[in-house]
Amino acid sequence: MNIFRLAGDMTHLASVLVLLLKIHTIKSCAGVSLKTQELYAIVFATRYLDILTSFVSIYNTLMKLIFLGSSFSIVWYMKYHKTVRRTYDRDQDTFRHWFLMLPCLLLALLIHEKFTFFEVLWTFSLYLEAVAILPQLVLLQRTRNIDNLTGQYIFLLGGYRGFYILNWIYRYFTEPHYVHWITWIAGLVQTLLYADFFYYYFLSWKNNKKLQLPA
């Protein structure tokens, strides 16, 4: 565990907590894409299938449980909670997430490190995570009206990706045989998707103004 990996995990954890705080305390999920949240639930479910069979550390297992639990509870809140679900921007959140899942599954079947059930699903989760933010970014673009918590949520998620890239660079130079092209390319693609959002986030921060995306 290096400082970049820890910082990445902590920003990831913070992003989830910010979103749960918004949903649980304010009882609102306005501006949050259910499509993206469903994709994350699928990402964690397929990636952490090994939770019972492979043990790395208590830290890893605990974090896996937190990410699984939080992603499914966010989906549950948005779909079934009687107050929260009424604040969901159903009509704007129309991204077809099947269009993301199918190509990711095909790609995982074609490009993977090992052709086993767990490994292909694990690779699928990497590809899907890379693009899972797209429905959220489209929803932001459409509603344009972004409250602080939603902005912070996406900012923290992007931060998590950035720290993971630093972690990979660090591990590449400090650990022999640490080469994972699939993870790196998927992670890089994912981080690049945030670039545009980050640009406008920093502009609004610099000018001390509310975050607004151009039409």
Partner: peptide
Amino acid sequence: AKEEESHDEL
């Protein structure tokens, strides 16, 4: 060891 390495991240 390689397999473990690739799955020790979250």
